[in-house]
Design a protein around this nucleic acid. Structure first.
Length: 494
DNA sequence: AAGTCAAGCAACCGCGGGTCT
DNA sequence: CAGACCCGCGGTTGCTTGACT
C-alpha cells in the first residue's frame, strides 16, 4: 500500500513532553528504516523510548505495532495457504477470537493478519452462504467444548495442566479425553468413599460433613496406576475428584483422604473404549427442518455466559450444508473461548452463585485463577513415582464456622469460606510453573479425527451441572452404586 | 472514463494485566 | 500501597485497490 500522507490518519497529536508532535497514520519507508535500525541496535521492548532516542515522531504503541506486524524478521506475507486456513478454522472453532494464540501456531503470521484473514473469510462465507466451519471441525470442536465444560463444571481445574502431567509422566502421553473422563462427575450418594487412582474405593474415617456447595479437588494420581479405560498402565487415571457438596474433615491435615466425596460417581468421557467419539449430535435450531436433540443437558453451557460469537465463533449459529446448527459453545462474555476462560468462568459462576451481588466479578475470577493454580501438592515417593495429592482443609473449614450448612442455603458466605480455606491450601502447595493457559499443549493432545459413534446415542450421561439430591441421605451402598455406574460403562464399552 | 461498491489491509483505540517506583 | 508506566490483546476505523456498472 502506498502511504498517503494527506489522509486524516496523519493527524499529529500533541506531545506534552516537548519532543514534538506524534505522527499518526501510515508509516513511510524512512520511518521504517529508523525503527528497524533502532530495534537492531537496542532490541525490542521499551517502545516508548524509541521516540526519545531515535527522533521518530511515533508513540511507543505505534512503534511496537509496526515492528510486530511489518518489520520484524521472518514474517510471512501473502495469502494464506490451505493448510494455514485449516489451522485457523480449526483453532477458531475451539478457542474463538484468540488471535495471538492462533499466531503462535502459525509461524510468520501475526495476530492482526490472522484476524483480518478471519474477518474477511467470515464475510465471504456469510455472503456466499458457506459454512464457516466444516462439519468435521464442528464435531471436533463440540467435543472440545464438551470436555472443556466438563473440565470446569467438575471443578477439576485444580488438576495440573496436561503439560505438567506430561512432565510428571514422561513415558505417557496423556490423552485429553481420558484426562477428563477419569474425573468423577456429579457427586451424590457416595459418602466416606474415595476412588483412588487404581480404581479402588477407600473409606474415609472420621467424617465431618459440611455441605457448602464448594468444590475442591480430592483426587490422586500415580504413575503406576492403570488406566481403566484403555488398560494402558502408562496412562493416567484419576480417582475421586470434584466434591460438589462439601469436602472432608478427615483425620490428619496431610492425609491423602482428608476429603469427603459426597456424591455418586459416573464416568462421563468423550471417547469410548473403542476410540469412538461420544460427540453428541448437533442440535438444530428452529430454522432447520429436521429435529435433533441433545441427549445431555450438560452440553448446554451456562446460559448467562453464552453471548455468542459476533464473529462467527461457534457460539453463534453457523451455516452447515445450508442448515443452521448449533453446537455446544462455551463463550466468555467477551465472545471468546478457551480453556482458561472456561476455568475462570466456572470458578466465577461457582462463586457468584453464593456471593453478594455487589462484588466485582473480576475479583472472583482473579481469585479463582489463584485457586486453580494452588490447590495440589506434588509428592515423590521412594520409587521416584510422583503423585499429586490434595491438601487438607479441615482446619480452615473449622475456622469458618460453616461446617453444617446446607448446600442450598443461599446465605452461605462462600467467599468467607474460601478466604479462610485458601491460606491453608497455599501454605502447602506449589504453583505449576506452566503458563495458565496451556491450550497449545491441549491442542497437541487433541485427536484430530472424531467420528461420530452410534454407540453414544444410547448412553445416558449425567449432567455435572445437575446435582442429584444433595440433601438426600446417602444410600446404604454407595460404593455399589458407583461401581455399577462405572463398571457398567466399562463392560458396555470395553 | 467516471462513479460506485466491496474486499483487503494497516493502523488506531480502549482496556486490562503486569511491573516499577 | 497507590499511581505511573509498559506492553499486549482484541475490536474498530478508515484508506487503498480493484471489479463492476
Amino acid at each position: 500500500m502506498i502511504p498517503n500522507n494527506n489522509n486524516n490518519y496523519n493527524d499529529e497529536v500533541a506531545n506534552d513532553e516537548n519532543e514534538g508532535p506524534l505522527k499518526k497514520g501510515p508509516w513511510t519507508p524512512d520511518e521504517d528504516a529508523i525503527l528497524s535500525a533502532y530495534v537492531k541496535r537496542f532490541g525490542e521492548g521499551n517502545w516508548n523510548l524509541v521516540q526519545r532516542n531515535s527522533g521518530l515522531s511515533r508513540c511507543g504503541k505505534s512503534c511496537r505495532l509496526r515492528w510486530a506486524n511489518h518489520l520484524r524478521p521472518n514474517l510471512k506475507k501473502g495469502t494464506f495457504s490451505e493448510e494455514e486456513e485449516r489451522i485457523v478454522v480449526d483453532l477458531h472453532a475451539k478457542i474463538g477470537n484468540k488471535w495471538s494464540q492462533m499466531a503462535t501456531q502459525l509461524p510468520g503470521r501475526t495476530d492482526n493478519e490472522i484476524k483480518n484473514f478471519w474477518n474477511t473469510r467470515l464475510k465471504r462465507c456469510q455472503r456466499e452462504s458457506l459454512p464457516i466451519y466444516p462439519l468435521a471441525v464442528l464435531r471436533e470442536a463440540a467435543l472440545y467444548h464438551k470436555l472443556e465444560q466438563q473440565y470446569y463444571e467438575q471443578q477439576t481445574y485444580n488438576m495440573p495442566p496436561l503439560s505438567v502431567l506430561s512432565r510428571l509422566y514422561p513415558n505417557s502421553k496423556p490423552n485429553v479425553s481420558n484426562y477428563y473422563s477419569a474425573a468423577a462427575v456429579n457427586p451424590a450418594p457416595l459418602q466416606n468413599q474415595l476412588l483412588d487412582s487404581g480404581s479402588n474405593f477407600y473409606t474415609i474415617p472420621s467424617l465431618n460433613l459440611p455441605s457448602p456447595p464448594i468444590s475442591l479437588f480430592a483426587g490422586s494420581l500415580s504413575s503406576n496406576s492403570s488406566d481403566v479405560f484403555n488398560n494402558n498402565n502408562q496412562s493416567l487415571s484419576f480417582g475421586a475428584t470434584a466434591a460438589h457438596h462439601g469436602f472432608a474433615a478427615g483425620g490428619g491435615t496431610d492425609s491423602l483422604f482428608d476429603f469427603q466425596y459426597s456424591g455418586s460417581l459416573s464416568f462421563n468421557h468423550g471417547i469410548n473404549n473403542n476410540g469412538d467419539s461420544m460427540i453428541p449430535p448437533l442440535i438444530q435450531s428452529s430454522g432447520g427442518s429436521s429435529s435433533q436433540s441433545l441427549p445431555d443437558s450438560s452440553l448446554t453451557p451456562v446460559s448467562s455466559h453464552n453471548s455468542g460469537g459476533v464473529d462467527g465463533f461457534m457460539g453463534a449459529s453457523s451455516m452447515v450444508s445450508n442448515e443452521f446448527f448449533e453446537v455446544a459453545p462455551f463463550s466468555s462474555p467477551q465472545g471468546n473461548s478457551g480453556l482458561l476462560d472456561a476455568v475462570l468462568l466456572g470458578g466465577q459462576s461457582l462463586s457468584e452463585r453464593n456471593k453478594p451481588r455487589s462484588e466485582d466479578s473480576t475479583s472472583a475470577a482473579a481469585r479463582t485463577t489463584s485457586r486453580k493454580r494452588k490447590s495440589m501438592v506434588v509428592e515423590e515417593n521412594a520409587e521416584g513415582n510422583t503423585s499429586v495429592v490434595p491438601v487438607a482443609v479441615e482446619s480452615a473449614l473449622m475456622n469458618t464456622g460453616e461446617t453444617s450448612r446446607s448446600p442450598d442455603d443461599e446465605n452461605i458466605d462462600i467467599d468467607k469460606l474460601l478466604d479462610a480455606i485458601e491460606p491453608h491450601i497455599f501454605d502447602k502447595t506449589i504453583s505449576w510453573d506452566e503458563p495458565d493457559d496451556d491450550l497449545p499443549s491441549l491442542l497437541d493432545d487433541f485427536p484430530l479425527e472424531m467420528p461420530l459413534s452410534d454407540w453414544y446415542q444410547g448412553v445416558e450421561i449425567q449432567s455435572p451441572g445437575i446435582e442429584t439430591q444433595p440433601h438426600a441421605p446417602p444410600p446404604s451402598g454407595p460404593t455399589d452404586e458407583v461401581s455399577m455406574t462405572f463398571w457398567n460403562l466399562l463392560e458396555q464399552h470395553g
